[in-house]
């Protein structure tokens, strides 16, 4: 559904970031980001598994809260 929820960067190694969102971790390439990404940042991952955008922490947490609200409804 072309949703993308901001994920937190928990580690960076060899141009790849490990990101976490709702307890799920996955890997994404930092090829597009020119070294702008650090551990603790929130990012959006694009199709193909590329980090495409930095998101400020407040916006990221608000968006995660919106998604959590929807998912809680879906689960109930």
């Amino acid at each position: 559904m072309c949703m993308a929820i901001p994920s937190e960067v928990i580690s960076i190694e060899n141009g790849m970031a490990t990101v976490e969102c709702f307890g799920v971790t996955r890997q994404a390439s930092l090829l597009m980001m020119d070294g702008q990404v650090a551990v603790g940042d929130y990012v959006l991952i694009q199709a193909g598994g590329f980090v495409a955008e930095l998101v400020d922490k407040q916006t990221a947490l608000e968006t995660q809260a919106m998604m959590a609200e929807m998912l809680a409804h879906q689960a109930s």
């Binding site: 559904m1 072309c2 949703m3 993308a4 929820i5 969102c21 709702f22 307890g23 799920v24 199709a47 998604m67 959590a68 998912l71 689960a75």
Partner: peptide
């Protein structure tokens, strides 16, 4: 923990 795939798998 919430398991999901936001991009829609």
């Amino acid at each position: 923990m919430i398991s999901f795939a936001p991009e829609g798998v």
